[in-house]
């Protein structure tokens, strides 16, 4: 049955090309007959497509290779690990509040790092997005250049940017600010550009038709239209920046991360717990604040 199907399917197209034109009836009657000689219940299992097969085999190969390299979840070690985690928690509580003031101070600097980095990143994102949106880009080459730059900013993780900027400007918060700014450019540049591209083309046309030059079309139509989306995206970027500013200190780019890694290295787990809790409160606070502001802008706008 099966072989017959494939065989006739193979010969069919040639038949159609050479003779099908002349006698249409033969094609019409024979084609359904070949497809469905005896209709039956669909098979219980369908054979995976070649693509799915390749994906599955590839994933399996990666997992096996990873296993040989130690990328495993080992139940036995999980049990002993949980025990050690218990030791950590036992040491960590109650949190040591002796150094709470310097910790809060350094947390404040961390947030200020995030804030400045976000502001710089958002400001630089606007021209990037205008050049990187199809409907406002001055030139095709600028469009690709800008989109490419945004992609580079986005795909390289912020910790790597921090390492790079530590080399450039030395240890300290300035490296963190720069790393966050670049990270924000990758995020905001992309979403700002997308939001410009989503604009109704008629709005642009309406201003262009008055004879206004392109840069005033930006100020007169694009910015006012996209402003709510820009602000909401920026608030979201600030949230992310606050979260990532916490870990940037781990590579020496300033902020609370430095304190945390020192406490951990000195096995001062109770002090580390104070830092972790403080981080938790600040990040949660920024998240709530930004969510409330986004709600206000997007919900109350129109």
């Amino acid at each position: 049955m099966k072989t017959k199907h494939t065989k006739s399917d193979n010969t069919k197209p040639q038949d159609m090309k050479t003779e099908g034109m002349k006698t249409e009836e033969t094609v019409d009657t024979s084609a359904p007959a070949l497809r469905n000689a005896d209709p039956q219940t669909p098979a219980r299992f369908t054979r995976p497509s070649a693509f799915a097969f390749v994906v599955l085999v590839g994933a399996a190969a990666l997992l096996i290779h990873g296993w040989t390299q130690g990328a495993v979840v080992n139940p036995a070690e999980l049990v002993t690990g949980a025990g050690r985690l218990g030791d950590f928690l036992a040491d960590a509580f109650p949190p040591d509040l002796d150094r709470v003031l310097p910790i809060l101070q350094s947390l404040l600097v961390t947030f200020e790092m995030a804030l400045l980095g976000t502001i710089v990143g958002v400001i630089l994102s606007v021209p990037l997005a205008i050049a990187g949106a199809r409907n406002t880009s001055p030139h095709r080459s600028l469009y690709y250049l800008s989109r490419g730059f945004i992609t580079v900013c986005r795909t390289i993780p912020d910790l790597v940017w921090a390492l790079i900027f530590v080399i450039a400007v030395g240890l300290g918060p300035q490296a963190g600010v720069l790393a966050i700014a670049v990270d924000v450019m990758g995020f905001c540049g992309r979403f700002f550009a997308d939001s410009i591209e989503e604009m109704d083309n008629g709005v642009l046309e309406g201003v262009r038709a008055t004879g206004a030059p392109e840069h005033s079309v930006i100020f007169g139509a694009v910015l006012p239209t996209c402003m709510p989306s820009f602000v909401a995206t920026s608030m979201f970027a600030l949230e992310q920046a606050t979260r990532s500013s916490v870990v940037l200190g781990l590579v020496g780019a300033g902020g609370i991360g430095v304190e945390l890694s020192v406490s951990m290295a000195l096995l001062r787990y109770d002090e580390a717990m104070t830092i972790i809790l403080a981080i938790f409160i600040v990040v949660l606070g920024v998240e709530r604040l930004s969510a409330a502001m986004r709600q206000r802008i997007l919900g109350g706008g129109s």
Binding site: V203, E205, G206, T210, G211, G220, T225, S302
Partner: peptide, 13 residues
């Protein structure tokens, strides 16, 4: 030259 559109094409916001 003024151009008037069917859908007004104003900046809504």
């Amino acid at each position: 030259v003024g151009f008037i559109f069917q859908n007004f094409n104003l900046v809504d916001r």
